Computed example of a mutant assay.
Amino acid sequence: MTSVNAMRIEPLQGSVSDAEWQARVDLAAAYRLCESHGMSDMIYTHISARVPDSPDHFLLNPNGMLFGEMTASCLLKVSMDGAIAYKPDLPYGLHPAGFTIHSGLYRARPDVMGIMHTHTIAGMAVSALKCGLLPLTQTATRFYGRIAYHDFRGPERDPSEREALAKSLGALDYMILKNHGMITVGQSVAEAFIAMWGMERSCQAQLAAMACNTELDMPSDAVVAASCAMYLPGASRRYGLLEWPALLRKLDRTEPGFRD
Rank of each mutant, 00 (worst) to 15 (best):
F58A: 05
H95V: 04
P96M: 08
L59I: 05
H46A: 10
S73M: 07
S79P: 12
T45W: 03
P91V: 15
F58I: 02
K87W: 00
S48H: 02
G82K: 12
D81K: 13
T71Q: 15
P96Y: 05
L75C: 11
L94A: 02
H95L: 14
A72L: 09
G93C: 13
P55M: 09
L59H: 02
H57K: 11
H95D: 15
S48L: 01
D53Q: 11
L60T: 00
S79Q: 13
V78G: 05
F99C: 02
L60A: 03
V78I: 11
K77Q: 11
F99I: 01
D81V: 00
F99A: 00
L59W: 03
P62G: 07
H46N: 15
A85C: 11
I84Y: 02
P91G: 12
A49T: 04
A85E: 13
V51A: 10
L59M: 01
H57T: 07
T45Q: 04
P52T: 15
A49S: 15
K87D: 01
G64H: 09
T45I: 01
F58D: 02
M65S: 00
G68R: 14
A72C: 09
S79R: 12
L60S: 00
F67H: 13
G98D: 05
P88S: 08
P88D: 06
G64R: 08
F99D: 00
D53C: 10
D56Y: 03
D89M: 15
D56R: 07
N61R: 03
N61Y: 03
R50K: 11
L59D: 02
N63V: 02
P62H: 04
S48Y: 03
G98K: 04
C74S: 12
L60D: 00
V78Y: 02
E69N: 06
N63D: 09
F99K: 00
G82C: 12
M70V: 02
D56W: 04
G93D: 14
A97R: 08
N63H: 14
G68A: 06
D53R: 09
P88C: 05
D56C: 00
Y86H: 12
G64N: 08
K77G: 05
P62N: 03
A72P: 09
H95T: 12
M70L: 15
G68E: 15
V78Q: 04
V78P: 01
L75I: 02
L59E: 01
A72I: 09
D53I: 06
K87A: 08
H46C: 10
P96G: 07
L76W: 01
P52K: 07
L94Y: 03
P52W: 08
P96S: 10
G64P: 06
T100H: 05
S54H: 08
K87I: 02
M80S: 05
A49D: 10
M70P: 03
K77T: 14
P96F: 06
S79C: 10
V51H: 01
I84L: 06
M65Q: 13
D81R: 06
D81P: 07
P52F: 08
Y86Q: 04
A83V: 08
G98R: 00
H57S: 10
L90F: 08
G93Q: 06
A83E: 06
D56V: 04
L76Q: 01
M80P: 12
